[in-house]
Every structure is written in structure tokens, then in C-alpha cells.
Computed example of a mutant assay.
Amino acid sequence: MIDALKYLTLAMAIALPFSAQAHKAWLLPSETVLSGEDPWITVDAAVSNDIFYFNHVPLRLNGLTITGPDGNSVQMENNASGKLRNTFDVHLAEPGTYRIAVVNAGLFASWDVDGKPKRWRGSLENFASEVPKDAKDLKVTQSAGRIETFVTAGRPNETALKSTGNGLEMLPVTHPNDLFAGETATFKLLLDGKPAPDLSIEIVPDGIRYRDKQNELSATSDKDGLFTVTWPDAGRYWLETQVEDDKTSVSQATQRRVSYVATLEVLPQ
């Protein structure tokens, strides 16, 4: 039952616009810029009511990918699952920038059974065997979500930041571990590897639990997918955007919902 609840929460987080729901998913590294010998970080993963506070359920790590500075995969270590969060360590054995992401894809289906609605959520692989081929009034929505953060040990590089060409991604023009209070950063949104124009981006600073307002920043991507952010203060920020279209890869699906979330750390001058 608990596993089912976790899956449902993440599925909803991927499928729905974040502005329409209370729960927000995120990855939070203990540090984003490190130096010295043999660096490690710990990452918290959760879905919560308040950004960066553990008060709902853990974020499932089934779709976790860690890309190292050389472009190769890195394994998480010391994974632990608790009631409110998952945690894991990453050994930054090579100098450079690491991309840590939870990438998920799924389907949501509804149909009619003797006048009563039937609903199903699951993976692309299970759709054919678990949803009747002759389902009446079948409606299928495809979803894809990326939740990520970036960490650099020593000198930053950009190998891990390359686009995969799948779903919504943020291609840093300004390096994501080179952000400073009072400065303006530029990023580029891509959808399936191509510029994503006219997307609304919400950016919320840490500490929401202790203030009356979100103090969110907003931006909109231009025709080339570019947007800028001027950071008012140092701290950690939660960035989110999403889009709906009909570019599905499953013939039965008529709609696709794609979301993107990033955790960024802005350093003091």
C-alpha cells in the first residue's frame, strides 16, 4: 500500500502542472560546489508540501541517473529509504560537473466498464497487457518528467550537461554551478532536443516555510528557448516548468504532459 501511494504521488507530480497541486518533487544535494581531495555529497529526494522540507513521501529513485564529468554513468552509494525521504551518496571521484536526475515516463488511461469509470496508471511496458484492447471510451495520456540537480567538484565542465533529446531539458548557457547573488544567469529550454519557446518558468527560493509568500520569480522562454534569471539572494532555488502537446510515442495516447524541475544553488558574491 505504501509503495502504491509513493508511485501515485510521483505519477501525479509528473502528470499535472505544479501550479495545480500542493506537492512538489525535488532533489537536494548537501553541496553543489566542492573542492579538496576525495569529495562526497549526500542527496535528499522527496515529494513535499513545502519545498526542501520532508513532510510528505520519499521521491522514488527508480529512474535515477547520475552522469559524470566524462559522460559516463556513476552509481549512487549508501542508499536509504525513510518514511519521508530517500537519501543517497555520490562519490565525486573525478573533477568536473555531475548531473543527477530522476527521469520518469508513464501512461494514464481511463475507460468505461458497464457505465462505471475505470482508471489505470503504469509503465509503457505494462500498458498492452494491463489495459484491455477493446476498452470502451479509452482515453490515454502520456507523461514524462525530469527532476535534476548539478554538482561540481573542482573546475566545472559541460560534458554531463549535453541534451539527451528526450522530454523537457534545461541546457545551461550560464553554468548551473556558477550562479551568484545579484548576477543574471541565462538558460535554454529544450523539448525533445529542440528549442522550447513560450514556456512559463516558476522559480521559488528556499525558506518558504518561514514566510507568508512564495516570493517566486517568473520567466518566459523566448523563440529560441532562452530565458534569464537575476538572482536576488544567495540560497537554494526550485525551478519548474511544464508543457502539454500531442507529440506522443504511443498510438493510443492523444495527449502528452512533460515536466521539468531543477534544484539550483546561488552563492554569495
Rank of each mutant, 00 (worst) to 15 (best):
M1C: 01
I2R: 14
K6T: 12
Y7L: 15
L10C: 01
A11N: 15
A11M: 05
A15Q: 11
L16K: 12
A20N: 13
A22K: 13
K24Q: 12
W26E: 05
W26V: 00
L27K: 11
E31R: 10
V33Y: 07
G36S: 06
E37V: 07
E37L: 02
W40I: 02
A45K: 11
S48G: 15
S48N: 03
F52L: 07
H56D: 13
V57R: 07
V57L: 14
R60A: 09
R60Q: 10
L61E: 05
N62A: 15
G63V: 03
G68S: 03
P69E: 12
P69C: 04
S73W: 00
V74L: 07
E77P: 00
N79A: 14
L84D: 04
L84G: 00
R85E: 10
T87W: 00
L92D: 04
L92W: 06
A93S: 15
A93M: 05
P95G: 00
T97A: 05
T97Y: 12
A101E: 15
A101C: 05
G106H: 06
F108D: 11
S110V: 02
V113T: 12
D114H: 14
K116H: 06
P117F: 02
P117S: 01
R121K: 08
R121C: 02
G122D: 05
S123V: 09
E125R: 07
E130D: 15
P132N: 05
K133L: 14
K133N: 08
A135P: 07
D137F: 09
Q142I: 02
S143Q: 05
I147A: 03
T149L: 12
T149H: 00
V151T: 06
T152F: 10
G154P: 03
G154C: 08
R155A: 15
P156M: 05
N157H: 07
N157F: 07
S163M: 02
E169G: 04
P172Q: 03
H175I: 13
N177L: 01
D178N: 14
L179A: 05
L179K: 00
A181P: 04
T186R: 11
F187H: 12
K188Y: 05
L189F: 15
L190C: 09
D192M: 03
P195L: 01
S200Y: 03
E202P: 00
E202Y: 04
I203N: 07
P205Y: 00
I208L: 04
I208R: 07
E216G: 11
L217V: 01
D224S: 13
G225Y: 05
G225A: 06
G225K: 09
W231K: 04
W231P: 06
P232V: 09
A234G: 10
G235W: 13
R236L: 01
W238N: 11
L239T: 14
L239F: 10
L239W: 13
E240K: 08
T241Q: 01
V243Y: 04
V243D: 09
V243S: 12
D245P: 04
T254H: 06
R256N: 03
S259N: 10
L264Q: 07
E265W: 01
E265P: 01
V266S: 04
V266M: 08
Q269R: 14
